[in-house]
Simulated assay, not measured.
Amino acid sequence: MQDGNDLGRRMGKGVHFGFKVCTLSASPPSFPALPQPTSRAGGNPSTFDQRHDHRQPSNQNDRMDKYSYVYMLASTRYGTLYIGVTSDLVKRVWQHRHGVVEGFTKQHKIHRLVWYETHGDIMEAIKREKRLKKWERAWKVKMISTSNPTWRDLYEDFTP
């Protein structure tokens, strides 16, 4: 049985969006590589798992060339939030910003990257995304405000 990720990789033109493979007609421009590892982590101390630092790859001795990212977008400061996971943060945020894929972020004009964290394992990133989606909104706002007090668009750090 194949999932959307495997099919998308083999086709070379798919994007993981939920569990669908969407073919894109537009592609983002090339940007400099994202610095590795990077973190904009934080969280509610009562729910943050202190035993595993999600801001660094799981095993520093076995650093992988491929990282995964959990990220949050906002429409404005304290506006509507969106949480996602991707293996290519710059490309995925570009897609959100340009409305390439129909969905929640396009409908609600959610384009500002306000928080992200790096994972060395995609399964850990997916687990973290699912946990964050269950958090109360106030906890998410506090996590963003702690690491990015002005809710600056972090995507600008990766673009020329």
Score class of each variant (00 low, 15 high):
residue 75 S to F: 02
residue 75 S to W: 03
residue 75 S to V: 06
residue 75 S to M: 06
residue 76 T to C: 12
residue 76 T to Q: 13
residue 76 T to Y: 09
residue 76 T to W: 03
residue 76 T to D: 15
residue 77 R to Y: 10
residue 77 R to D: 13
residue 78 Y to L: 15
residue 78 Y to D: 15
residue 79 G to R: 04
residue 79 G to P: 01
residue 80 T to D: 07
residue 80 T to N: 08
residue 81 L to V: 04
residue 83 I to M: 04
residue 83 I to G: 01
residue 83 I to T: 07
residue 86 T to H: 02
residue 89 L to E: 06
residue 89 L to P: 00
residue 89 L to W: 03
residue 90 V to C: 10
residue 92 R to L: 08
residue 93 V to K: 02
residue 93 V to T: 10
residue 93 V to N: 01
residue 95 Q to I: 12
residue 95 Q to H: 14
residue 96 H to T: 01
residue 97 R to L: 03
residue 98 H to K: 12
residue 98 H to T: 13
residue 99 G to W: 03
residue 99 G to H: 13
residue 100 V to G: 02
residue 101 V to S: 00
residue 101 V to R: 13
residue 102 E to M: 06
residue 103 G to A: 05
residue 104 F to R: 12
residue 105 T to G: 05
residue 105 T to A: 07
residue 108 H to A: 05
residue 110 I to P: 00
residue 111 H to K: 15
residue 112 R to H: 05
residue 113 L to P: 00
residue 113 L to E: 01
residue 114 V to S: 00
residue 114 V to N: 00
residue 115 W to H: 11
residue 116 Y to M: 11
residue 116 Y to R: 05
residue 117 E to Q: 10
residue 117 E to D: 14
residue 117 E to I: 08
residue 117 E to K: 06
residue 118 T to D: 11
residue 118 T to Q: 04
residue 118 T to S: 10
residue 118 T to H: 04
residue 118 T to E: 09
residue 119 H to S: 12
residue 119 H to Q: 11
residue 121 D to H: 05
residue 121 D to Y: 02
residue 121 D to A: 05
residue 122 I to Q: 14
residue 123 M to R: 10
residue 124 E to W: 06
residue 124 E to P: 00
residue 125 A to N: 03
residue 126 I to E: 09
residue 126 I to D: 05
residue 127 K to F: 08
residue 127 K to H: 13
residue 127 K to P: 04
residue 128 R to L: 11
residue 129 E to I: 02
residue 131 R to V: 14
residue 131 R to T: 14
residue 132 L to D: 03
residue 132 L to Q: 00
residue 133 K to A: 07
residue 133 K to R: 15
residue 134 K to M: 09
residue 134 K to H: 11
residue 136 E to W: 02
residue 136 E to G: 04
residue 136 E to P: 04
residue 136 E to L: 11
residue 136 E to K: 13
residue 136 E to C: 09
residue 137 R to M: 03
residue 138 A to W: 09
residue 138 A to E: 15
residue 139 W to Y: 12
residue 139 W to V: 04
